[in-house]
Design a protein around this nucleic acid. Structure first.
Length: 532
RNA sequence: GGCUCCGUAGCCAAGUGGCUAAGGCAGCGGAUUGCAAAUCCGCCAUCGUGGGUUCAACUCCCACCGGAGCCUCCA
């Protein structure tokens, strides 16, 4: 298969053309969470971009296997579970459930395997034994360490030398041959969870599970391995060393790392440059007093109140967050907060309105795969027979979208094409007058559906607009009731308008605006929407 | 101290050694509307600063200023 997909490889620091280990197949592995606390937004960046990458690779004709591991044994889990007075396994189970729920909310549903460290002990121990046999690791007082100095290529990924500090100081330092060595196996204290091994009871070090589990599922060399930029060192450097030394062949073709999220500074939003003289109220600038801590934008971490993602999703909707993440490039650092999400939400409305408009005109359910079918593969696409400037434009925008995706999954650039598709489609509806039933000729309607299908085909690659946006409230009875009520109100107002009693009709509309409902008078009657 | 990355309009954000520097949000003007909303049309940037390389740089190199990250657990 020939594609021109290019991926930025952290190892070589260049974009490289994708050439898979097995033709037509892609194996990819994303480092998942250590499940000792609730997920925060930073944990979602990798899953969302990988989910999108998988969708795109599949669209490009590849068969993709995607693995995300769950680290369910480590020091933090042990400590945290003690604090909470529950077992490590209970804590892991709870936090894994939280993680999975968050993934689902963001539309991440392409993961094929989610192996857990505790369920792969045999494989992990086997891997360590192999490393010792090959002379790259040594046992020391119940621990096992990787001997960094034996690996000539150590440090290439993160661009540092083998003597880089590896944490594990203190008492364990004396068990190591050199400071750069890192633990493959840690002996357990009597009250710690442990597994039997040739070196006594213990638990695996942080890095080895990924080497072991990726090999089991994806093989000795697989295509794409990713995670947050903060994992490059030491985690990925060490994984890479373990696997390569164990197998004598590269672990991964392409190392892919996403940029990190930063917390929003939440400073006074309105008004211009108040950089200097902060504190002094500049005319019209309302700035909320914030503590020094809050005013400093910084890296999101669990220890600094970065959790509570579930609440955030409830407040902002998963699609907003997904769209927000996809709006910029996955490798860039992104400032995150309610403000930026609101803006993403505002621009999403443009899409929702078009979709509603289309559904109203055509009677087709946009989200139904039978009513508005789309092509599964890029190569399935055939230029529409119906010719129209709008269709031609859509076809061209589609190509633009795909070429941006080809270039290191440039989702930010691709969303621009999506917006332009919306404009082209609205323009088509306007120019053909499709709001009026009389003008809905079979040709025009076919063209509209064709255009919408192109739009849907592209947006579904990003994993957005694949299901109807969540209704606020979520209570179906209440929703139906509200709908009936609104129809009644609209009817009464229409009667007033028919009599040119605008005082009454405006008063109704203003009243609704006050409570957050916007009315829209169109050629075909009045519609309403709840302001988000 | 060592190693990375970033600095594009009020804000967010793509992108390129040479065609009009995408798109979004906000704003402004127009079409439409009883008035609005929505939609459409139009307007709104010379790319942190200073040098250098080049026929040509926002895009490459150097310096500086500013911001972020990693080097310790972290997606």
């Amino acid at each position: 298969m020939t594609t021109s997909i290019r991926i930025y490889n952290t190892l070589t620091k260049t974009k490289e053309t994708l050439q898979t280990v097995e033709p037509g197949k892609v194996g990819m592995y994303l480092c998942g969470p250590t499940v000792y606390a609730e997920a925060h937004i930073g944990h979602m960046v990798g899953p969302v971009i990988f989910d999108t990458i998988k969708r795109y690779l599949q669209y490009s004709g590849y068969e993709v296997t995607w693995v995300v591991n769950i680290t369910d044994v480590d020091d933090k889990l042990i400590n945290k579970s003690r604090e909470k007075g529950i077992s490590m396994f209970q804590l892991a189970t709870q936090m894994t459930a939280d993680y999975l729920a968050n993934l689902q909310s963001l539309g991440v549903d392409q993961i094929d395997h989610m192996p857990r460290a505790t369920e792969n002990m045999d494989e992990i121990i086997k891997f360590i034994v192999e490393l010792i046999d090959r002379g790259f690791a040594y046992a020391s007082q119940g621990d096992v360490y990787f001997d960094v100095l034996k690996d000539e290529e150590y440090g290439r990924l993160s661009n540092r030398t083998a003597d880089a500090q590896q944490g594990e100081g203190g008492e364990t330092a004396s068990r190591k041959r050199s400071t750069g060595d890192f633990a493959l196996w840690k002996s357990a204290k009597p009250d710690e969870p442990s597994w039997p091994s040739p070196w006594g009871n213990g638990r695996p070090g942080w890095h080895i599970e990924c080497s072991a589990m990726s090999r089991r599922i994806l093989g000795k060399t697989f295509d794409i391995h990713g995670g947050g930029l903060d994992l490059v060192f030491p985690h990925h450097e060490n994984e890479l060393a373990q696997s390569r030394c164990c197998h004598g062949q590269p672990m991964v073709r392409y190392w892919l790392h996403n940029g990190l999220m930063r917390a929003d500074a939440e400073k006074g939003k309105v008004g211009g440059k108040s950089d200097r003289d902060d504190g002094a109220a500049i005319e019209g600038v309302v700035s909320e007093p914030v503590s020094v801590e809050e005013a400093t934008a910084g890296k999101i971490s669990r220890s600094k109140g970065g959790g509570g993602l579930a609440k955030l999703i409830e407040r902002q909707t998963g699609e907003r967050i997904r769209f927000f993440l996809l709006r910029s490039h996955y490798r860039s650092t992104t400032v995150f907060g309610d403000g930026p999400l609101e803006e993403a939400g505002a621009s999403l409305e443009t899409f929702y309105r078009l979709i509603q408009r289309f559904e109203k005109i055509s009677g087709i359910d946009f989200y139904d795969k039978d009513q508005l079918p789309i092509g599964k593969h890029r190569s399935d696409f055939v230029a529409p027979k119906l010719r129209h400037a709008a269709i031609d434009e859509l076809v061209k925008l589609r190509e633009g979208f795909l070429s941006k995706m080809d270039d290191d999954f440039n989702t930010g650039g691709a969303t621009g094409d999506l917006f332009e598709m919306v404009r082209a489609l609205n323009r088509f509806i306007d120019s053909e007058g499709l709001e009026e039933p009389a003008k809905r000729t079979p040709d025009a309607m076919a063209m509209l559906s064709t255009g919408m299908a192109i739009f849907k085909e592209m947006s579904s690659i990003l994993g957005i607009f694949v299901r109807p946006p969540k209704q606020s409230g979520g209570n179906e009875d209440a929703t139906q009731l509200l709908d009936g009520l609104m129809q009644l109100v609209i009817q009464l107002r229409s009667d007033a308008r028919a009599k040119r009693d605008f005082a009454t009709s405006d008063s109704v509309r203003n009243g609704l605006t006050q409570i957050g409902i916007t009315l829209q008078d169109g050629k075909n009657g009045t519609t309403w929407e709840v302001n988000k």
